[in-house]
Amino acid sequence: MDVITRTVDARGQSCPGPLVTLARALVSAERGDLLELLATDPGSKSDVPSWSKLTGNELLDAGEDAGTFRYVVRKA
């Protein structure tokens, strides 16, 4: 079972907030680290997968629970 290295809380932030917060957190992460992103911006549903394609950081999981979107990303 993979362990989340760090949780990035971008709840309440709007475009481009969540991606900028995630990108910043990624700078201090190691290759292979799993980062969990929490967001409430509905735009993140399309933006996080697009960002993953652009950057090559793998999107392992995406889901929604009670208005919070949760994404798990592996740093490339």
Binding site: C15, L19, D47, W51, T55
Partner: peptide, 12 residues
């Protein structure tokens, strides 16, 4: 500026 910052966050 939204596009510029998002592009930077996307490693461009």
């Amino acid at each position: 500026l939204i596009l510029a910052t998002t592009a930077a966050a996307s490693g461009m």
